[in-house]
Structures are given as C-alpha cells and as structure tokens.
Design a protein around this nucleic acid. Structure first.
Lengths: 259, 259
DNA sequence: TAGTGGTCTAGACCACCTC
DNA sequence: AGGTGGTCTAGACCACTAA
C-alpha cells in the first residue's frame, strides 16, 4: 500500500534521530522535517504526517513533536490548521519583514564606541509654528509647553543618526542634561512625569532627502536618509512623546529576516 | 516579611485568572505578567518569580507557565537565563519590525486597479559593464547571458514602483511577454528553468535619490525613494535571480507592527 | 547544595474539520 | 465517528548558577 510505503520511508528518515545525543530531540526532529521539506519530499501545500503519527514513528512524546513543529511554524515554513493538519507553506516571497534595532545597543554590544551629544534643547509654546504639527501629534492644547531636544550619535567618531525628540513639559521634575543623553525617550518620559508610563508605540519609516540634518551627519546636502518617526502612547492610548530619527542613507539599511 | 508581602500581592494579581474561561490559561498568565511588567511592578532587569513559583501561585502546571513566559520571551519582553532566572528586558522600544508587502497583492485586495507595463527587456552578455555587478551577485561566468527587464506598476494610473529584474538566460524555455507581466520573479524563474526552484531570499532596504527612475515614476529628479534589493536562492544556496524595486518615497512608507 | 530554566513523558480533554 | 491540532497536567531528569 502507498501509505505503508510512505511509513517505511519516513521511518527510515527518522532513524537518524539519536535520543541519547546532547542535541535536544525536538531540535533533531525539526531539522529532519526541515530537510524533508527542503528536498520536497513534502512539497508546497502538502500535509505533513500528523503529530501523533510522527510521535509513533519516532517513539517520542507528542509534546516533543509539537515543539519541533512549532520551530518550523514560527519561521513560516509550515502552517498549522486546527482540525485539518499541518501543511507546507506555499511561500511566494511576496512579503518581507525588516527589523530595525536601536544602534546604541547593537553597536555597544559589538564593542564599538558610541557617543551622543546634545545639539539643541529648548522649551517651546504650543503656539509656535515650529512645533505646530508636533502639538497636533501630541494632542496638546494652546498654552501648554513642549521640551524639544536634538541628539547626534556617533559610532567610532562618525556621525550616524540625528534625533529630534519632543515631550510635553510639565515642570514636574527637572530634566538634567545627563538624563537626556543617557536615557531613551520612553525612560525620560517616566523620569519627567511619573504619571505617564509608555505602553505602546507606533513607528513609520520613510525615505527622505537630507537638508539641515546633512550638516550634522557630515554628509552632502541632498543625500538620501532614512527617517523613522515614533509616537509613544500610554495605557490609555494618549500620545505622550514623539521622536524623529534620521539615519545616514549611505550607512544605514535594513535587512530582511525571512526564510 | 518582604517575600510574604510580595507573594500576597502576586497572589492577588494572579487571582484574575479564570481557569474555566475559553481563553487559554497560558494566554491569561502571559497577559497578567505583561501587565505587571508594563506597570513596572517588575522593573527592567528585575527577575520574575520562578516558573515553579508562578505555577504554585496560580495552581497550574509548570509547562503552562513556561508557555506563557515563552510568549513574552519571543517578543523580547523578558530574557531567560539558564540556572539564574527570567529577567525583564532592559530595552524599551529599541527595536521595531517593519513589514513590507508586495503592492500587487495588497492593492488588488483593497480593490484598486493595478496595471503593469514593460519598460525594457533585453538579453545581455555577462561581460557587459552594465550588468557587471549583477553578474557577480548571480555568480555568473563570462560568456553566460542575463535576461534583464524593467517593469513599471501603476495603482489607479499613478506610477508606484519601478522594478528591474535579472535572471540567468539559459534558452531552456521561451519567455513570453505575458509571463513577464503576470509572474513574480520567483515564478518566472521556475517557468524558465525547471531545475531552479526558489527556496530562500534575502532583502535589503535602502533610501536612495531618484535619478532616471524619477522619469518613470513621474516625480521630480532628486526626490527620495525606497530601494528594496532582493536576491533569490535555490535549495543549494546558489543565487538564481535578482531584483531591484524602487518605490516613490512620497507614496511608500513602512509601518511598524510592534506592541 | 538548593534553585533555576531546558527538556521530555504519557497520558488527558477539547474544539474543529471531514466523511 | 474518527482524525487533527490546541491545551493542560503532574510528574521526571538534566545542566547550569550561585551561595
């Protein structure tokens, strides 16, 4: 019978499994399944053997099989469908996710020297034209005030990103220069006003032409840059802080992590 | 005692848990823990109660607690350290993932009219200067040939993205104009040469200044654009196709989906 | 040595899907 | 009704860490 033959083939594939190995069983099973999918023993859209079946074949617990398949499902290699089965995904590469990681952490971990200096810092009235759209984003009424500051960060003495940050200024606590340099915007927000705890954020990534920022970033005016806008909200979905990060287009790019 | 007090507080927090609910217990526990972290009941760097402890407090199995914490660990909210404990991550909002979805799918699903036209199509020798770096990317030897074509896509008659695609030309199967327009690059690759099945891809996103592409995109020369480079590999990690997509910077942006 | 997370078991019940 | 994935249990042993 066809199914018997399949079983035999599978049993053969799974015989590679070494339960005494230091390598976790679930990991081995995941790798074997990945290999079978890669070799198109299970083609796109095809159903994998059921979890129970694999557990029997490998003589391991079903929970272990589940953990193995979970590894593949997380990566989008297979898709689970309740009541139906687990299927090899038909990926057509029509989507991609790009991960943006804050440069401070990333670079420091790599052992690079990262420095930050304050370019400007002032307190503005909401009525000022220069903060008009910021006031709207932060949902501020006329008469309220905004602390605006600009930071320039260097990796190995080379400018990398220019950031402009805005927080409603409430006189609650003084803000020290060291706080501005050492703290991320979310942290500074709580430092300044304990009633406002960052809860969610939304980000938008755009391509821009560098103008005044070019000078700070020590790059030619008119060069390309990547702008990431970030709006920070509290638990009640009120905006409590805004930030614009401008990266040098020649230095900064995003890499997709899809498989 | 301090620890007793903490236990009481925690017991109180976990009393929200409803084991009879249709909502999975692990999900409820994850949400409770997430809340405690966001309210800074457990601050950055602080250790969470051990899995065993939480299991006792909630009167549930440790495996269920593990699944709950796994949810948080995947999102980077907490970090597990073997032999030590589980700690609240110190980083706040310092990473973001941006999802890029192919415009054809996205727009058609929204009901917009999407059209595509061929701008150019030619077959080049690898020695040609104009495909020199492409030949390197595709790992081609001198003498081999490359099919190059340019596509311009419109949404509601407005140009949106300009794409340049390159595939090794092997005379295997003829390539029709309709194939070029209707097929994604991965699909075209298998159409043209059945021995080459796309398996993985890598993408890079950059900010650029539009030059010749500006004309096609009906935008001023020197405007910003987003360039996504895509290299497609087969099972053996050999590059089998390359694509550059240039989006109008004023129309196209990426939105973060983090929570 | 005691506590932690990492792995694994051998069951169980459920909701869902297909026949 | 029988098969599937989703959840959950109450144990177990392990490697690692810190005191």
């Amino acid at each position: 019978m066809a199914t018997e033959k399949l079983d035999l083939n599978l049993k053969n594939e799974f015989s590679k499994l070494d339960k005494t190995s230091v390598i976790p069983v679930y990991y081995q099973v995941a790798k074997i399944l990945e290999g079978l999918i890669l070799e198109e023993k299970f083609g796109p859209g095809e159903m994998l053997p059921s979890e129970t079946k694999i557990a029997e074949l490998c003589d391991i617990s079903r929970m272990t099989v589940r953990k193995a398949i979970s590894e593949l499902a997380e990566r989008g290699l297979v898709i689970r469908e309740k009541g139906k089965g687990t299927f090899v995904s038909k990926k057509d590469f029509n989507y991609a996710t790009f991960k943006h990681i804050d440069l401070h952490d990333k670079m420091r971990k790599k052992g690079y020297e990262v420095t930050t200096k304050i370019i400007q810092a002032d307190i503005l009235k909401t009525e000022d034209d220069s903060v008009d759209n910021i006031a709207k984003k932060l949902n501020l009424s006329p008469g309220e005030r905004v602390l605006r500051y600009g930071l320039l960060s260097y990796v190995e003495e080379k400018p990398y990103v220019f950031e402009k940050k805005y927080i409603p200024y409430t006189k609650q606590s003084p803000i020290l220069e060291s706080d501005i340099i050492d703290s991320s915007l979310p942290r500074l927000l709580t430092l300044h006003d304990k009633t406002k705890t960052p809860y969610t954020n939304s980000r938008v990534l755009k391509a821009v032409i560098l103008n005044e920022e070019a000078k700070h970033l020590e790059i030619e005016k008119g060069s390309p840059g990547i702008l990431i806008e970030q709006l920070i909200y509290d638990k009640d979905e009120n905006p409590i802080g805004y930030e614009e990060s401008i990266y040098r287009g020649d230095e900064y790019m995003l890499v997709s992590e899809d498989k």
